[in-house]
Structures are given as structure tokens and as C-alpha cells.
Amino acid sequence: MMNTIDLENSDVTELNQKLHDVNGTKDKSEWQILNPKGRHNVAVGIDAPLKVKIDGHVGYYCAGMNKHANVTVKGNVGPGVAENMMSGIVHVTGSASQYAGATAHGGLLIIDGDASSRCGISMKGVDILVKGSVGHMSAFMAQSGRLVICGDAGDALGDSLYEAHIYVRGKIASLGADCIEKPIKSKHQKELGKLLKDAGVNDIDVSEFRRYGSARKLYNFDVDNVDVY
């Protein structure tokens, strides 16, 4: 059954409350949200395998802390889409503002357009696939998970990176402190191939990407590294 909520006649709190009514269950119902018109905090805190389709642009923190749900935004998203997501899928058909997927622990975030600065900042296990390009400081302090960038990356990519894997197909303006290029082994090709497939990208080959990761030189304080601290 399809439930439709028009944010022209209902507010975000009412909407979220309805979505939370099934939190903790295996409810798979479908929801369509109309007229989001840039509202903030749409569909945050879901904890059920719902299918949510948002028709239009949204503001900050859309699908924040998502668990299990499959949320599609037909439009652009403001800052912090899918922030701290735990699981599920968030798919943005347009572009994303800053901090997309910030600190997210799991799940898959797909952005069909571009993502702005700090995409995947402090990510903790999420997979993020950006079909376009990302802005500066993306994957800053990224701890784990994978960030796939089909386009270009801005300055200071992967600065102070921990164990996250970064794949970039296009140009990189510059790498951040402690981020280096690493060889792509077959296990990396496999994980990258699967991510591309999961995100529905069929026209790009894994061989077109380069891999970046942590040099692990900043993991423990060393007086000889003072110039980069």
C-alpha cells in the first residue's frame, strides 16, 4: 500500500511521527512525500525497512540516522543528508550540499549528481557513491567504509584519514595530510565492482579508478611529523 503525505498540509513532525510508529518492526510499506520544498529533517530516525520516496528538494539532515529504510530523494538535498546513517539506502537523484553521509556507520548513500565539501566526513562504515564530483575536505578523518567518486575530488581529499577506502575516477585537486595513493588489488576491484553494481552504475569499469588510503604516519605522535600536526 502506498501512503502519501503532502507536506503542504502536514508538518515534518507529524510525518516523522508516522514513520516512527513502525520503528523496530519489519514493516515494508511505501511512502510518498510531496512538496518537501526544502524543509529540514525530513524522514529522520526511521528504524524499519520502509520505502520512502520524497518528491522534491529537501533541506538539512534528510534521512538522518536512518536504519533499514530505503529513502529516495527526487531532487537535491541540503547539508548532512543521511548523517550518522546506520543501515539502509539513501539515494539522491540530484546533488548534495556539505557533509553528505557525515559520521555514517553503515548503509549505502548514492548521489547521482555532485556532492559538496566534506562529503563522508568522519565516516564510520558507510558506503558512499557519488556519480559526479565532490568538494574539498571530503573523507576528512574518515574512519572506515568506502567513498567512491566517479568524477573529480576537491582539495585535501582524505585529510587525516584512518581506515576508510577512497576510490576516485577523475582528477584530484590535492590529497590531504597522510592520504596516499595505494595499489588496487583484486579484493579492491571486487568491493568497488560490487558498489558500482549496487548503485546501478553499469557503464564505468573498475579499472578507471585509483585507490587512496591512509599512510598511517599520524597514527601515533612522532616528533618528526610536527610540521603536519
Binding site: H40, N41, V44, G59, Y60, Y61, G64, P79, G80, E83, Q98, Y99, A102, T103, H105, R118, I121, S122, K124, G125, F140, M141, Q143, S144, S160, Y162, E163, Y219, N220, F221
Partner: peptide
């Protein structure tokens, strides 16, 4: 979500808001 035994640095700024205006939205979230 970090490797064992490394010096762990917590950021000094929040990753997804920068000032009182977006903190208001964060709190609403």
C-alpha cells in the same frame, strides 16, 4: 570504529553544523 592502539584525536568542531543557525536545525533533528 578505529584501529587498536592508535592515538585517537577527536575533532574540535562538529562535522555537520558550524554555527548557531544550523545548530538550531541539528537540535530539531
Amino acid at each position: 570504529d578505529l584501529p587498536e592502539g592508535i592515538d585517537q584525536r577527536s575533532a574540535c568542531r562538529h562535522p555537520d553544523w558550524t554555527g548557531p543557525d544550523d545548530l538550531a536545525i541539528k537540535i530539531q533533528e
